[in-house]
Write a protein that binds this DNA or RNA. Structure first.
Lengths: 190, 190, 190, 190
DNA sequence: TATGAATGAGAATTCATTCAT
DNA sequence: GATGAATGAATTCTCATTCAT
């Protein structure tokens, strides 16, 4: 196993344990043993457990933001772009339910307090999303509300719907996803 | 201090600590001392810390559901009823931000896993809400989607918007609340 | 065992282990078990291991200073007073060899760096000793050297002699002690 | 860097760290990195950390004893020889305060317990010193006390005075050194 | 020889829970 | 019932040492 592999294994094992059992249920000893790594090895790669968690968060966030804008149809009508972003978000979350659970735990914990919460949909990559909302607002395609509200109107239901699915309280199929994203558009459009 | 007072003090002190510092930041010794109560006293009222937390959750949930349907305009048009419930939800959360933080932490933790998540908007009192969605669906006022989706379309953005406000990332004023709830209605109506 | 007893037992067990094995050889778990006390109990009485050690130091220092001036012949000639203090110092150290070893370890460690080293012969009680040197200097009974030097001339050999005895490299009997203290007087007198 | 250089660098870096921070504050990893050497390299030269420390002690001791007898005035009166040795001791310690701090730490630690303590003034080279005391005793120049006591009477104050200087509690100038060594002679002479 | 990533036993400390008072 | 001192298992983190390269 190479050095990079160990780092990856540790991050993966931490992700899995925290996603399933919460921060309380992920002692470093268990993270290490699930990663097939010595207890001290964690500290070769991360200064502390907290830093490990922060790092994990940052990596997952980057991946999610990349997924959101992958295949972004920058030339199509604005509405199509919204729909694309919404569907991408749902599909990506469903594809990596562990990541999703981890991010949710992180945001709702003192760890996440340091991070501006809106960063789940804000950061470098997401300029594209802010831009999208701004442009749509200028063209008077969407309602005249603060951008933060509009983003929550569009992404909030998707977040909840994904959570229900991931926790097993509901099941999403493709047509339902499509119609849900359409409904989110209805929430913000004029 | 009467027996009932002690119980209340313990619950209140636990709520405050958990809301502000998370589960990790609320050791029983601190909960007890903030409640002006001996460390062992907690165990006169609750079998364990977990039971204390569960109990706290249940009490807060009951209060919130009661708030949701208080003054429910059962005779007015369905749309008005939705608007009422939406606004009540936002106003109540803003009125008791600690409760809101606690509930969020609870839902996104292994504690909450035991609880069916939909219970935040489901339980005894909330029959009224399920009923509302069912009736609106029958009258073809709202979209033909699973009830769970519809509920998330309506409440999801409100949840997010309140969270942003409580965490200090945004500020809500009355007109904005009204227009946001209206937008939520747009998401579900035909 | 009363509360005070536990505190005393912990301090005693720490003293013994550190005196014999050094700071490295005195893990908290061992201190606790030798004191017939749970591992966590130490933290009921002391904030941290460091605080335990500081406290132990302060208590031993107080006892030693008290011993130095016990039976102080304040009315006899100054020479007699020096001889009394010198002998008291040696006898007390020989009576409590553990205390002596602990104090030596403490002074020669980063712990002791915080403490002004001269405090082994300086503090509240020892005003009597500083006074003694000052008075003898005014009366031109002893040499015209900085007080710190004079104190080291008088106590330095005693310290070394006691150390040799305690470590088993030499054996002190009463007449030898007396003659050694006399020789220390010779070092400072005019 | 040659093999010998590496060995020297390791010893030097260990000396510095231990002198300043104590044994606790000198982890092997830090010793290695300060010596610009890999963590494992220490074990090419020393069997264990303990052996490294023992070796360091022995080297410093040899150097100090050599300094003590350098320029030894073997043909002058005995008193001059004592004065020479005393001043050489003080001057050498002041010249290499790190060495002095290390030796003090070593002597007052379980490491030093293995070593006969008197070896600070006893060993191969120091035969010259033992000889000096014995000759002076035979000629009835100095008091009739055990040699160990006499050595402590002479060197004890110097040790303490140097310690105070090195720790910054006092400042020694040349005339004070001279007069202090004279006073030490007063302590042992008849 | 030299390296430094990896190790895991052991360290200090925390904290939910108990129980004698 | 109420207390809070005491507990000890569990947790995070350190560090001397090893070993494949």
């Amino acid at each position: 196993m190479t050095t990079t592999d160990k780092r990856r294994e540790i991050l993966h094992s931490a992700l899995k344990l925290i996603a399933l059992n919460g921060f309380q249920g992920a002692p470093t000893a268990l993270i290490a043993s699930r990663a097939n790594v010595g207890a001290g090895t964690i500290y070769c790669y991360f200064e502390s457990k907290d830093v490990l968690i922060q790092t994990l968060y940052e990596e997952l966030e980057i991946r999610m933001l990349a997924a959101l804008t992958k295949g972004y149809p920058g030339t199509q009508p604005l509405r199509e772009r919204f729909i694309h972003v919404g569907k991408s978000f749902v599909r990506y979350c469903l594809a990596v339910p562990m990541d999703f659970r981890f991010l949710e735990q992180f945001h709702n914990s003192p760890h996440g307090a340091a991070y501006r919460r809106d960063r789940i949909l804000g950061g470098k990559d997401q300029d594209i999303i802010h831009e999208l909302f701004e442009k749509a607002q200028k063209e008077q395609l969407i309602k005249d509300l603060p951008k933060m509200i509009l983003m929550n109107l569009f992404f909030g239901p998707l977040l909840c719907v994904v959570r229900d699915h991931v926790l097993g309280f509901a099941t999403l199929d493709e047509p339902t996803i499509d119609r849900t994203v359409d409904a989110c558009w209805d929430a913000i459009r004029r």
